[in-house]
Amino acid sequence: MPLWSRAQQQDFRSRVRGCLLGGAIGDALGAGIEFESLEKIRAVHGPQGVTGYVPAYGRLGAVTDDTQMVLFTLDGLIRAHIRRDTGSWHPPTDLHLAYLRWAATQRDWGPDERRADLGWLGREEWLYAQRAPGQACLSGLSGPDAERLGTLEAPKNPHSKGCGTVMRAAPFGLLTTWDPGLVFQLAVECSVLTHGHPTGYLSAGALAVIVQTAARGGTLEEGVHLALALLSERPAHEETTTALRAALDAVRAGEPSAERVEALGEGWVAEEALAIGVYCALVAHDIRSGLLLAVNHSGDSDSTGAICGNLLGVLHGDTALPPGLVAGLEGRAALLELADDFVLELMHGPELHGPDAAGGAAWAARYPVLG
């Protein structure tokens, strides 16, 4: 691991925080209108559509399964890095275990204190709530086949390309010291844990690479072109490539509008959610306007808002996010705590769990690695 300067550490921390908070804000902005048509959104909320949080799940600023799964993705990545000390290195296994812990939040009333693997995130009671989880995510992580690790050769739900792959993929892009091809591959291998259609898992890989480019200080446009180059090397990339190119074409077509968003699809499937999120991030005059564009359409508003928020957050950092939206966001403390733990692990892992680590017991309790 290269040495990080203080400025690099501060910049990386801000981008990680921004990615998580921005995604959650976009998710929460779309949560209350997820299943509404653009016509109804405008009829209820005015010609501009929603301009801030609207009630969802009994409160303002509520997040959905999108943010829940992003949290568990980051938790799994931290544990995968810790597991390197044991001589066992297979991140998809740790991500599979993390998603199984998420699945428990969708069926249990609260954390089972008898479980030694939960860590601090699995004991967050507010996460034990169903927020319209995707069926492929649920079916891939429950039932008699739940414990089986989906692989590219034998994926779970081989015909599913729902957006449940791409809406949880941004954290893979925060692995900034990895080669982009490896980041793409890891996102793919962790997508087939629940979704096996090539368009689903390739869309996840594409988003991860775009996020990584921004996290390294590049532009979103550079990230999109790198993603297209990596996609071109993969079988069955055509749907994902076409969707990304459509997003770029829409940027050049004129002034941003909800109608241009709707021409890219509704976002229920992975490539459409990716295209909408990327388009809205590329044309955003500022973070708020980009997020509102990403949610005010007929379709999966929370997922497209989350993807756009991931991109704008990692591009600009947490301090650029609209303060009123940050303040009203459900789970903000947990999001920030997990983001900071991820940064600690990537920058100071050996000091936290190496043979001479003073805080090893505390870190092991937060992120237990069993077996």
Rank of each mutant, 00 (worst) to 15 (best):
M1K: 03
R6Y: 08
A7W: 02
F12C: 06
L20F: 13
L21N: 07
G23D: 12
A24M: 12
G26T: 05
G32C: 14
F35V: 06
E36D: 12
L38A: 09
K40Q: 14
A43V: 01
G46I: 02
G49S: 03
G49F: 03
G52Y: 00
Y57F: 15
R59Q: 15
G61L: 12
A62E: 08
T67E: 02
T67Y: 07
M69K: 00
V70A: 05
L74F: 02
A80S: 15
I82Q: 12
I82N: 00
R83P: 02
T86V: 09
T86M: 11
T86L: 13
S88R: 14
D94N: 10
L95V: 13
L95S: 01
L97C: 00
Y99C: 04
W102E: 06
A103E: 12
W109S: 14
G110Q: 12
P111I: 05
G122A: 06
E124A: 05
L127D: 06
Y128H: 00
Q130A: 06
Q135S: 10
A136T: 15
G140Q: 03
L141G: 00
E147R: 13
T151S: 15
A154E: 13
N157K: 11
P158D: 05
P158K: 07
S160C: 13
K161F: 08
G164H: 07
M167D: 11
A169C: 05
P171W: 13
L174H: 09
L175W: 15
G181S: 11
L186Y: 09
E189M: 11
S191N: 05
T194W: 04
H195Q: 08
G196F: 02
P198G: 06
P198T: 03
P198D: 04
T199M: 10
T199E: 14
T199C: 13
L202V: 08
A204L: 03
V209F: 08
V211H: 07
Q212M: 15
T213C: 15
R216K: 14
L220D: 09
E222D: 14
V224W: 03
L226D: 13
L228E: 08
H237K: 05
E238C: 01
L244K: 12
L244Q: 07
R245T: 13
A247H: 07
A247F: 05
D249H: 11
D249S: 13
V251L: 09
G254M: 03
E255K: 10
G267I: 01
L274Y: 09
I276V: 04
V278F: 03
V278I: 13
A284Y: 02
D286A: 04
I287A: 01
I287N: 01
S289L: 01
L292K: 02
V295Q: 08
N296P: 09
S298L: 01
S298Y: 02
S303A: 14
G309N: 08
L315Q: 15
H316W: 09
P322S: 12
P323K: 02
L329V: 11
A333Y: 04
L338V: 12
A339F: 07
F342N: 06
L344H: 13
L352M: 15
G354Q: 07
G360L: 08
W363K: 08
P368W: 10
V369L: 14
L370W: 08
L370F: 01
G371Q: 12
